[in-house]
Design a binder for these strands. Structure first.
Length: 280
DNA sequence: TTGAGTGTTGTCGA
DNA sequence: ATCGACAACACTCA
């Protein structure tokens, strides 16, 4: 489900809903969602107060009195907030009960998500967070940085952009959309673009993600933010889920291929493997 | 009915 | 070290 824009929307919702609330108890119905010992996880959270909720890449970071709770939604993780009774669902797996009687429930159909409690200040020191690249909408994501990073990289454009070590936040939807916007084939060698192409790609990533954040993300099948609201960026998709439909730029039917196991959508005319002529 | 496909990423083997 | 395949799991669709 969630790429950067969706996680950002969840973060915003959680900040509205659970800031300053104090946890009374925690229930875990599927231990594999918890990294580390789930008994300790439940114990340590009692009496912790929520300060603020942040985001790093696709990770949510819930800042507590003495700890940080790292939460990754992976494919289908969601948070639901309830003021009264919690409707029964076979996919509700983790329950945070607050002293005011309200609850935050982690729901995950596929159980791929992960929750990890670490000491305050240690979230960004975890190995998987430490190797993340810069935020695409932050100051560190400069064109110069991006060019140098991609020139050092090996492999094909799309897999390299999905790896999160050069820039965070892109997933299968937004990488396809960014490559369409930049008119680059997903199988181009990532270290062999022209400077003009690097510039187009850099700009495309920023503009696609900015608009998607503004629209509250994309709701393709099931995504909802913590307030229960759908995203609206799906109205703006040009290639993802548009296989066979005419390209919005040139009319050629959108193609779908498999690239490293991921469905990959692109326009075979606008995003040719040999499109150097676009720079002339 | 069965198999393929689904928004992610950590791990494993070459 | 790096890259691709696979696993974690449930559900939908052809």
């Amino acid at each position: 489900m969630p790429e950067l824009p969706e996680v950002e929307a969840v973060k915003e919702g959680l900040n509205q809903l659970i800031r300053h609330k104090t946890i009374q108890s925690v229930d875990v119905l599927w231990d594999n969602l918890i990294l580390g010992d789930s008994t300790r996880f439940k114990q340590m959270l009692v009496n912790q107060q929520i300060e603020t909720i942040g985001r790093r890449g696709k990770f949510l970071i819930i800042n507590l009195t003495d700890f940080q709770l790292i939460s990754h939604l992976r494919m289908e993780g969601k948070y639901d907030y309830y003021r009264t009774e919690i409707p029964s669902s076979k996919h509700n797996h983790v329950f945070f009960h607050f002293i005011d009687g309200t609850s935050l429930v982690y729901n995950d159909v596929r159980k791929f998500g992960r929750l990890q409690l670490v000491n305050k200040g240690m979230a960004l020191e975890q190995p998987n967070l430490r190797k993340l690249g810069p935020e695409p909408l932050g100051d560190a994501f400069t064109l110069n940085y991006f060019i140098h990073a991609l020139k050092k990289s090996r492999g094909l454009l799309k897999p390299v952009l999905l790896a999160q070590n050069i820039v965070v936040g892109l997933g299968n939807i937004y990488v396809d959309e960014s490559l369409w916007q930049a008119q680059l084939h997903p199988k181009r060698a990532a270290n062999q673009l022209t400077n003009k192409e690097y510039q187009r790609l850099h700009q495309a990533i920023i503009s696609v993600l900015s608009l998607a954040v503004e629209m509250g993300g994309s709701t393709i099948r099931t995504y909802k933010n913590a307030l229960g609201e759908a995203g609206q960026f799906q109205q703006h998709l040009h290639v993802y889920g548009r296989t066979g439909l005419p390209c919005d730029r040139c009319g050629q039917p959108i193609e779908k291929i498999k690239l490293n196991g991921r469905g990959t959508h692109f326009c075979p005319r606008c995003q040719s493997l040999n499109n150097d002529f676009l720079d002339s």
